[in-house]
């Protein structure tokens, strides 16, 4: 039920591998704290790998929006990688798909960040 998060560095980009559920409670909190922690350490190029996120609710959507806005307001960039169909569909119906920079290939995604 819970969500797991781990980070790795690739060419100056912090890739956050998330797995599980981003929902009200633990999942949303893990995401929020992970992004805040990265930004506070000056790691402002963030790629959220959602390939193993099998479920997200409205609270989780709100948390993604919050993460995106927080990163942007601090001069950073936050992009999404490997959306599952469920998450893709949710971002489509909430009209957020075009707001986020969504990638489906890690190498291309890493290269797309501002140097």
């Amino acid at each position: 039920m819970s969500m797991k998060s781990s980070t790795r560095q690739v060419d100056g980009v912090t890739i956050v591998d998330l797995s599980g559920r981003i929902t009200l409670g633990e999942g949303s909190i893990v995401l929020r704290e992970t992004v805040r922690d990265l930004l506070s350490k000056g790691q402002k190029k963030i790629l959220l790998n959602l390939g193993d996120v099998n479920y997200i609710d409205s609270s989780g959507i709100g948390e993604l929006v919050s993460a995106f806005t927080t990163a942007k307001n601090q001069g950073g960039e936050l992009k999404l990688l490997n959306l599952t169909k469920k998450v893709h569909d949710l971002l489509q119906i909430t009209k957020l798909y075009t707001v986020f920079d969504v990638k489906d290939d890690e190498t291309t995604a890493v290269k797309s960040f501002t140097k």
Binding site: S58, S59, I61, G62, E63, V65, T69, L90, T94
Partner: peptide, 20 residues
């Protein structure tokens, strides 16, 4: 929640999703 002014709000999508 689909209105341009509300698109980037961090809450307010629950009823919309239910209706969807």
């Amino acid at each position: 929640p689909l209105a341009p002014d509300n698109l980037m709000k961090t809450s307010g999508r629950g009823i919309f999703l239910i209706r969807s």
